[in-house]
Nucleic acid binder design. Structure first.
Lengths: 240, 240
DNA sequence: ACCTGAACACCGTTCAAGT
DNA sequence: ACCTGAACACCGTTCAAGT
């Protein structure tokens, strides 16, 4: 039903949906590959996710993976979809604005719950069924709110770009080879404060705020600005 | 003067500023390394930018690079700064809003003028002098406009995140291994249109708009929403 | 001071061959 | 149908050694 016969092939070769309860014997499944890839991502991060390590984890040689999967990009696309499958949808009883706030929080929560998840999404085209679902839901909310088609498409795009972009900044953390993640903000803050004040007066003066330890508040700030802007455009479109 | 004695070391070992007009003989300079890295980036893209290829271009073996540069991450950070050096600043005669629009356009123009530039910025911490300058300038515009310190820091962060995030989406293009970049939008649009309409009604209906060939308009749309939102927050803060 | 040779420990991917 | 051995063409980085 509902178009299960659609050809996902070109972008997304075969849905990871019809899965028959992974048998005890080690018969490699596409779904099992994805499952282990997600576990490996959480443990080793984006850079640690290699075909060879993934194969090792599945008790198989790297070459075997290529029987189940076209290449690493496909693994990443499947991974992106698996991550998106955890994102909840809108609530029909709420306003469009409440729903976008809800969805943004959900989206971000999921992206932060898996290591480097935002990097996986950024490295991957939006072609998986679950990822498409989240876009579909955002479009539905916006269209129902009365946004004209073009504005709804733009708004959904921008909305997605904002959440992923923010989570990307957030998860990079710039701690590579640096101090332990906990001390990082403090260290960066001190470094900014030590900059030449004659050249970078604002940077030095605002260092405390720039490295505020509460990204939640900042996420809200940007989201509020964006939604205020969309609201303004909506009322403009309503009049026009 | 103005703090030239500041220790950039921890994050940005030695400014690429004091350069003495590359001599004819092949004495490798830090600045020359960065110059060639930028050329290589433009030719080969982010994934094609390797230490070995960069060395080859400089007529030197890969190991030699490590005498001038700590590692590849440092090359990327220097590259990010070289790219940011091309971004123009604000105009003191304009309003804060006009200036942010101007700076956003400049920023995006530069990011699109070098292949995968947004990826370089996203992969790199904001520690170079020219990159810091652009942040300083954004903060200055916001503070002068009357934003409270915390809001100015948030706004500058979000502003940066928006521009880089948008350019990132834009430059990825998802054409990897796919059709030539020109046909890509059309191909993606057709694929979206072919999705099962019962499951993805909005996606199918809005495919034409989602793959609109004019990212400029969409960039404006999002920027306008963001700035409208900031304007609303500013007047709220003014009253509060 | 500046560069190299040679190595180490990896990558993604292919493909003939095994079962 | 499913997996492997072995190879190909690469990576980033280190380090003793050369000049």
């Amino acid at each position: 039903m509902n178009g299960a016969e659609h050809d996902w092939g070109a972008w997304f070769a075969g849905p990871a949906l019809r899965e028959e309860a992974a048998p005890v014997r080690a018969l490699l499944t596409r779904a099992e590959v994805v499952r282990q890839a997600l576990l490996l991502l959480d443990e080793a991060g984006f850079d640690g996710l290699t075909m060879r390590r993934l194969a090792g984890r599945l008790g198989v040689k790297a070459a075997s993976l290529y029987y189940h999967v076209r290449n690493k990009d496909e693994v990443l696309a499947l991974l992106a979809d698996a991550i998106c499958s955890e994102i909840g949808g809108p609530d029909p009883d709420r306003s469009w604005r409440e729903n976008l706030e809800l969805m943004a929080a959900e989206y971000r929560r999921v992206l932060l719950s898996h290591r480097d998840a935002a990097r996986v999404l950024a490295a991957t085209p939006p072609v998986g069924p679950d990822r498409l679902r989240t876009i579909e839901q955002a479009l539905e909310v916006l269209c129902s709110a009365g946004f004209p088609d073009e504005a709804a498409a733009d708004a959904a795009f921008i909305f997605n770009s904002y959440v992923v972009g923010f989570a990307l900044d957030e998860s990079l953390g710039w701690s590579e080879g640096g101090p332990p993640a906990g001390d990082f903000r403090e260290q960066a803050k001190q470094w900014y404060k030590s900059l030449p004040a004659a050249r970078f007066p604002r940077l030095v003066a605002l260092a405390d705020h720039l490295f505020d330890p509460t990204p939640d508040r900042r996420f809200e700030f940007g989201l509020t600005a964006l939604l205020d802007g969309l609201e303004a455009q909506l009322s403009r479109a309503g009049r026009g």
